[in-house]
């Protein structure tokens, strides 16, 4: 089970999000996160979907996405190098005597304090998911009052886009194997 970041370019039309979300639900695929945003072209939006599953499942997800008429392009970014970012806004319980301690922690993670109240602060942090998760864990002992994340957005690395293709996708697991036999050992067909 591997995490996959799938970038989906879609026509900017009503119902596209419902269609994609519905397809995931109907076919029992997971969505860990889904982000929709505009692109450089007003006709299209980009969705970045994070999903986990084995290779055959991910292959089906890609193909089923490709079948949706309003989906223009599907790209699995996990097969290639990409820049991925998640944005976290977290409100942490913070009495005045803890401010410097949390401020320090924030600096280590290159986050920034974007709001300060009498007994809590709001921190903003961007980065790949694991960094965000590590930071959230460190905040937990202080008391998290509210937390919101955008989910991952991603683009291929510049060096990667230029020289084109990604490495070949990993070989699928064989569901049926040429060596499969019946429970009794070999396939028993009636006599000739």
């Amino acid at each position: 089970m591997k995490k996959h970041i799938i970038s989906v370019l879609v026509q900017n039309q009503p119902g596209v999000l419902a269609h994609i979300a519905g397809m995931f639900a109907a076919r029992g695929f997971n969505i860990d996160s889904l982000v929709v945003g505009r692109t450089e072209d007003p006709e299209f939006s980009r969705m970045v979907i994070v999903s986990t599953g084995d290779a055959p499942t991910l292959e089906q997800i890609r193909k089923q996405l490709g079948k949706i008429v309003t989906v223009v392009k599907v790209r699995d970014l996990s097969d290639q190098k990409c820049v991925e970012r998640d944005l976290l806004l977290i409100q942490v319980h913070c009495p005045p005597e803890k401010r410097s301690e949390l401020g320090h922690l924030c600096e280590v993670f290159r986050g920034s304090i974007v709001d300060v109240g009498p007994r809590s602060i709001v921190i903003q942090l961007t980065g790949p998911e694991d960094k965000i998760e590590a930071f959230v864990e460190l905040c937990r002992p202080y008391g998290i009052k509210a937390l919101s994340r955008t989910g991952v957005i991603a683009v291929p690395r510049a060096s990667q886009t230029e020289n084109g293709s990604a490495e070949a996708p990993p070989r699928r697991k064989r569901i049926r194997t040429a060596t499969a036999t019946t429970p009794s050992g070999t396939l028993v067909l009636p006599p000739s």
């Binding site: 089906q60 193909k63 089923q64 490709g66 079948k67 569901i175 049926r176 194997t177 040429a178 060596t179 499969a180 036999t181 019946t182 396939l187």
Partner: peptide, 17 residues
């Protein structure tokens, strides 16, 4: 699991999925 166990399978289809 035991469908056409000895066969190499060729599949011609317009729908990749």
């Amino acid at each position: 699991e035991t469908f056409a166990p000895h066969a190499k399978i060729i599949h011609i289809d317009v729908d990749p999925s």
